[in-house]
Write a protein that binds this DNA or RNA. Structure first.
Lengths: 154, 154
DNA sequence: AGTGAAATTTATCTAAC
DNA sequence: GTTAGATAAATTTCACT
């Protein structure tokens, strides 16, 4: 699907706020409400917009601690990788898992209530996954960007 | 603000889809549409829901490459940290920046069109930020979870 | 592609229970 | 917490440029 400049402007806006009225959005991008809606519908149908979601505050729901966990697996075998991906999907504490090149195999974004909660999680998770060789934890002190916005201007 | 079980159920749903009608949402959580709306309004006002956004496909907008970049700064001085945070905010290629404990100071999530594009970015970014001591890149092969959902059940 | 107007659906607000 | 009704607003459909 081809995106023109207006599509990109629309995406830029809805990445920040998808609850605007088409009227408001149209005013921002210089289009009528109807035209905006047609484009939005298209962008959703073509999965350029993958989802429309509410961003929930980790702190407000009692999970103020975020950690980044680098995981190394025993072997880089396809079936082991796949099994580990499935484990990530089945583990609610893990918000995101990146399968990466480099000295670790995965980087996990994990939320927890506090340090003790996190430690219990690691014990359980690493006990249940015998394929794990080792892991290394970074504790997040601060997150700088909301972090879901793709650059549509560069 | 106190969250009860129904609030959590609502949050769980809108984290996946915030464009449901209150009618549908009510059916899912066992509440009337009006009650749902009242709760949602509350959750937004209290910033339990921080934002409502569209998730855009990196691939579909021409940025299929994601990298995780661990950055070490020359000194861990407050003003240097703050200056670097500002640089993150001003750099559209960086989707998220985590200020972390551990052997690196920051972990950045960076998108790019391809490897060449990424290399040009690093040259520019590290040239512009003299505080950077070094960095280490992991290339993302696969991302396992959409990655924005907080666990409201555990 | 775009607009504008009518028809439909949805959200919001209030009142009463 | 619920339903019901009034109002306002958003979305969709359609005719048309």
């Amino acid at each position: 699907m081809e995106l023109d400049a207006i599509d990109r402007r629309i995406l830029r806006e809805v990445q920040l706020n998808n609850r605007m009225t088409s009227e408001e959005l149209g005013a921002l991008v210089g289009l009528s409400a109807t035209a905006c809606q047609r484009r939005l519908k298209h962008l959703r149908a073509e999965r350029v917009i993958e989802a429309d979601v509410a961003i929930v505050s980790p702190r407000k729901v009692g999970r103020p601690l975020t950690t980044l966990v680098q995981v190394s697996l025993e072997r880089e075998r396809a079936d082991i990788i796949d099994r580990f991906k499935a484990a990530i999907r089945d583990t609610p504490e893990i918000m995101t898992g990146y399968y990466v090149t480099g000295d670790a195999d995965f980087l996990l974004v994990v939320t927890a209530r506090d340090m003790e909660d996190f430690e219990q999680f690691t014990r359980r998770f690493f006990y249940e996954n015998q394929d794990i060789k080792g892991f290394k934890t970074m504790v997040v002190i601060d997150r700088v960007k909301a972090g879901f916005g793709l650059p549509l201007e560069v």
